[in-house]
Amino acid sequence: MTTTAALPPALAEIVDDFQALEEPDRLLLLLEFSRGLPALPERLSDHPELLEQVVECQTPLFLTVETEKGDDGDVIRLFFKAPQEAPTTRGFAGVLHEGLDGLPAATILAVPDDMPDLLGLTRAITPLRMRGMSAMLGRIKRKVAAAG
């Protein structure tokens, strides 16, 4: 099982926050992340064909990644589109956005595939939703690898 030491600092802090809570409170924290998911920039919201659907998610979730020049080299920007009425899906997208957005590609590619399990939600969320969460991370990593 992965530990938070294997995660980028922002994502490790998020995982620590989840692990510090009892299970019912973890769902509340996930809801907070769903409310914090940024809206798509206009250039993407007007062009849904630029987003890729994560078909493994029960709810229609779309994402894309872009490479941006940063002060210390290229960084990855993450963009998600998920319906307001899907707080679990939006919440996990929010976790990934807050934990990974703006990091170098190599850092994102090094995130362990079992990272969603570290949130401690496996008993509170259906296995199908957990697979969707893992698929979201996997899709991000595939798109980052393809962009590199």
Rank of each mutant, 00 (worst) to 15 (best):
E66Y: 05
E66N: 11
T67S: 15
T67W: 07
T67N: 12
T67G: 15
E68S: 14
E68Q: 14
K69C: 11
G70L: 11
G70E: 09
G70F: 08
D71C: 07
D71L: 13
D72K: 14
D72A: 14
G73M: 08
D74F: 11
V75D: 05
V75N: 09
I76P: 10
I76Y: 06
R77H: 10
R77C: 13
L78W: 10
L78P: 02
L78D: 06
F79K: 05
F80R: 10
F80L: 12
K81Q: 15
K81D: 15
A82H: 05
A82W: 02
A82T: 09
Q84T: 15
Q84F: 12
Q84S: 15
E85F: 09
E85W: 04
A86I: 11
A86N: 10
A86R: 06
A86Y: 08
P87T: 02
P87Y: 00
T88E: 12
T88G: 14
T88Y: 13
T89R: 02
T89Y: 08
T89I: 09
T89Q: 07
T89W: 08
T89C: 09
T89G: 10
R90S: 08
R90H: 07
G91Y: 01
G91M: 06
F92Q: 03
F92Y: 11
F92G: 04
A93L: 03
G94H: 03
G94M: 03
G94P: 03
G94C: 07
G94K: 00
G94A: 09
V95L: 08
V95Q: 06
L96W: 08
L96A: 07
L96G: 03
L96M: 10
H97T: 07
H97Q: 13
H97D: 10
E98H: 13
E98D: 11
E98N: 10
G99E: 02
G99K: 00
G99C: 08
G99H: 09
L100G: 02
L100S: 01
D101T: 12
D101N: 15
D101A: 11
G102T: 11
G102V: 04
G102D: 01
L103C: 07
L103S: 00
A105D: 05
A105W: 06
A105P: 10
A106S: 13
A106K: 13
A106Q: 13
A106H: 09
T107P: 08
T107D: 12
T107V: 15
I108P: 00
I108R: 00
L109S: 03
A110G: 01
A110N: 09
A110K: 05
A110L: 07
A110M: 10
A110Q: 06
V111N: 02
V111K: 01
P112W: 04
P112G: 05
P112T: 10
D113I: 03
D113Q: 10
D114N: 11
D114P: 08
D114G: 04
D114V: 03
M115W: 03
M115L: 10
M115R: 01
P116N: 05
P116E: 03
P116V: 01
P116C: 02
D117I: 11
L118R: 01
L118Y: 04
L118S: 05
L118H: 04
L119P: 00
L119K: 00
G120E: 00
G120C: 12
L121F: 04
L121A: 04
T122G: 08
T122F: 06
R123V: 07
R123A: 14
R123G: 04
A124Q: 12
A124R: 05
I125C: 10
I125H: 02
